[in-house]
Amino acid sequence: MKKELIELRVNGRTYELAIESSKLLLDVLRQDLDLTGSKRGCDESSCGACTVLVDGIPMLSCALLAASCEGQEITTVEGVSEHGSLAAIQKAYGDWGGSQCGFCTPGFMMTVKHLIAENDEPTDADIRAALSGNLCRCTGYEQMYQAIKSAIDAERRGSGVAQ
């Protein structure tokens, strides 16, 4: 198939790529950029494992054409860590059991990052609503709520460490 040249901004870096115009953002991230953190969990845009931030908004990268994201700022799970160390939410997910098999975790990281950025005092209902587009088959979500609250706490204290 014919390829076209595009420029993608991912995690603060600019990549110049020759890709088929029909190629999905998820496939470009995983195959062309070797950013395999974003996962494919379904065929019909229903699981959220592929969630990335496009200009700060959580989007399903399996439902976006890579070529349509030119000029936008894409953040994947690989871009969540801060200054080479775990972001509060990453640490908290580990400490509180928010991640078991971890396959859904990259998607949740992006969704939660957005949630926290938008609302630094989410209620339980806010959190449940925000996470409802991401499926997890292991955790029953419960320990994620604790992780999110502790991450917000940790960020507020500015220590970046969850207790």
């Binding site: 395999t36 494919r40 799970v77 690989e78 939410i89 990453q90 580990g94 971890g102 990281m109």
Partner: peptide, 21 residues
Amino acid sequence: KPIAMVDAAGKTTGAGKYTDD
């Protein structure tokens, strides 16, 4: 003691590799 899984960071940073990766 409640202990974070030894592979937790690989999962939360996306660095951990599953077969399809």
